[in-house]
Each structure stands twice: as structure tokens, then as C-alpha cells.
Amino acid sequence: MALTVARRLGEFVLAVLVASIVVFALLSVLPGDPARAQLGLDATPDEVQRLREQLGLDRPLPVRYLEWITGFVRGDMGISYSSRTPIAPQVLDALQVSLLLVGAGILIAVLIALPLGTIAAVRQHHWDGALLAGLSQIGISVPNFLAGLILVTVFSVRLGWLPSGGWTAPADDPLDFLRHLILPALSLGLVRGAILSRYTRAAVLDIQREDFMRTARAKGLTPGAAMRRHGIRNALVPVITVTGVEFSALIIGAVVIETVFVVPGMGSLLLRSVANRDLGEVQAIVMVIVVLVLVVNLLVDVVHSIVDPRLRSAR
């Protein structure tokens, strides 16, 4: 078991390294010189050259990569070309905001999807099961920014219960933080929840057909008890996989919602860096997102092997 964990961690580090090389290489071969981009079109070649030296852009790529990645590991992501301030604090602040938002979104999605998906499956031949299946179908077809706009219209504009945008850090004012979190998290979570509930429904339907569910009933469990004791945990295996994928998708999907709700997260920061043609910042943000996705995958594997004993000995 300990060996398995060590091996999985080794694989994780390897994946991060490979990803970092790809990210670095991609952004380095992009056309456009950061120095030229900052100084504008009327700068003389001399001025551009001086800035290149100052930024270290004249050194060979491998050297720059090593410097970048070792800095990254220490938490130093370099200096922003545009604002001339360290990148790391900005990215970490934005990361904190995004994690809270996406985490809340996934939590809402799971809280919606597990019960509704299960009910939709167990009662598939009844009107309520069919209704739930239909509702989730509608939910999937709604883009999350539209869900966001509808929520804002109803709860901020009409009812005035919640702010339509902005952000408060939880440390500053927990209550105000929650008030600002609810609408964007709901916009993310409702749509993802609809998608996830389809998967949950399918997984539970599959489980109901499994032989061991029949065994459970032959032991004297009622259908409901058989589902609670034997069904749900088995159905969770595929659902966990999808949740992991959804989480990764949400980190990216949050870009739009952060814009709609003026939330200072990774998405907003990424948009701003791209607009400023600040490649250093873009590089750092992309790398953080990549690491985040890999961490989520790692977590999915860990949760999987906790839930499913077959995965513990198979590897």
C-alpha cells in the first residue's frame, strides 16, 4: 500500500514536470516578443534589446526554463512584465478565490446530483423519476452564464436578497463572503449538478441490474435497503471519476462566471494577463491550473482506492 502511494506520487511529479516543459515551450515559441509588446511599436531596437537583457530573455531556453521551474517550486513565479510586481501573490490570491468558488460549485453539484440522480434511477418507471430525468436534461442545455444571469435577475434585481457581483474574502467578513459566494457558486453548481445527476442516474441504473443487488435482496434486504447498503457505494465509483473531470472543467468554466459576477479569481486574472500580453503571468496561471487539475486527478485516484478495494491490489 505504501509502495503504491509512493509510486502514484512519483507519477504525479513526473506528470507535473512534463506539463511544465510543455507549458513553458508553448508560450516561448509563441510569436511576439514580450519586451516589444511592453515598449510599444515606436521603441527603438536598442531599447527593446536592453529590456530583453533586463528581463533575461536573451539567455538560452533551457536556462530560462530551469530558472522558471525552480523558482516556481519555491513559490517565486517571477516578476510581471506589465505591472513590474511579483506574480506569485496575485496568482495565489486569485487561486484562493477560485478554489472557494469552484469548491462550492462542485459541492452544490454533488449535493444536487447524488440524491436526484439516485431517485431518478430508482423511480424511473414513476412520474417523479421521469420528471427528474427531464429536468436534468433541461439543466444540461443551459449554459452556466445564462443560469448566472437568470439568478442575478431574480435574486438581486427583483428580490434584492443577494449582491449581483463582487467579492469579500471570508477572513474579512464571513457572512458577506457567503452572500457573495451563493449566486456564482449556484450558477456553476446547478448546471454541473444536472450533468452529474445524469451520470449518477446511469450508474445507479447499472447497479440495479448487478447480480450482487439480487443477492442482497435474496438475503432479505428490501430494495431500498439493498440500494443504501450495497448499491450507492458501488454506483459512486464511476460518479467519482466524472466528478473529477467536472472539477477540472469547472476551473476553466469559472472564467465566464467570474466575469459575470466580477469575482477576482484565476479566470479574471487570466483574461487580464492575456489582454495585457503579459506572457509571464499567463505562463504562471496556466501552470497553476495544470497543477490543480493534476492534483484533482491524484485525489480522484486516492478516493477511488479508498472506495474500491480492487484498485488497491491491482496496481
Binding site: E210, D211, F212, R214, T215, H230, N234, V307, D308
Partner: peptide, 15 residues
């Protein structure tokens, strides 16, 4: 009580 045909799938794999 009942014993089924398929021993490979008749037991809960997670328990």
C-alpha cells in the same frame, strides 16, 4: 435462501 449461477458477480465487490 438462494445460490446463484455467477459466483464472479454475485458478491458485492466493495465489501
Amino acid at each position: 435462501a438462494m445460490v446463484f449461477q455467477e459466483p464472479m458477480t454475485a458478491l458485492n465487490p466493495l465489501m
